[in-house]
């Protein structure tokens, strides 16, 4: 152990090294590190924001799909109701038409039967008059006995 001028020389060297490190090494590296920290923090923030936005968009899309599905269901319901209404109306109309046609046909039948019956009656009356005149063998004054003959015809 002996002290000599080495001590002073080394102190100066040490001071110069510290000065160099303070001015030319430390600030550059810490600056780079801090900038990178900032960048990473920004990147993480952006990622988180993007994630949140994505989730929001997903929710929105899901809500819209749900709404569309609901609307579609409503439209189908309404269409079905309308179809039922049309079907009901058609059925009612058809029934009414059938009834109308049936009634008309029945009327026809009734009037035709009436006419046939009257015709029949007239013929029967005429035949009866013819028969009677043959039986009596003389000309019955058809005009004189018309009232009598008509009365007979109605009675048949």
């Amino acid at each position: 152990m002996e002290f000599n001028a080495t001590l002073i020389g080394e102190m100066i060297a040490f001071a110069i090294l510290i000065w160099f490190c303070v001015h030319f090494i430390w600030p550059h590296i810490t600056k780079a590190i801090e900038e990178r920290q900032l960048k990473i923090a920004e990147g993480l923030n952006a990622a988180e924001r993007a994630h949140a936005e994505l989730r929001e968009a997903d929710n929105k899309a899901a809500a819209e799909v749900k709404q569309a599905r609901q609307q579609a269901a409503e439209i189908i319901d309404r269409a079905q109701q309308q179809a039922n209404q049309i079907l009901d109306k058609a059925r009612v109309d058809a029934v009414a038409e059938i009834n109308r046609l049936k009634a008309a046909a029945q009327d026809d039948i009734a009037s035709m039967a009436q006419r046939a019956r009257e015709e029949l009656r007239e013929r029967v009356g005429a035949l009866a008059v013819q028969g009677a005149s043959k039986i009596v063998q003389r000309e019955i004054d058809a005009a004189a006995h018309k009232t009598l003959l008509d009365q007979l015809a109605t009675e048949i």
Binding site: F20, F24, I25, H28, I29, K31, A32, R36, K39
Partner: peptide, 21 residues
């Protein structure tokens, strides 16, 4: 050794980037 230390760190500090090191 002191100069070695200074040169070593200084050369890298000079080119230090905030990007991929």
């Amino acid at each position: 050794l002191g100069v070695l230390f200074c040169l070593w760190f200084w050369l890298l500090a000079r080119k230090a980037t905030a990007g991929v090191p």
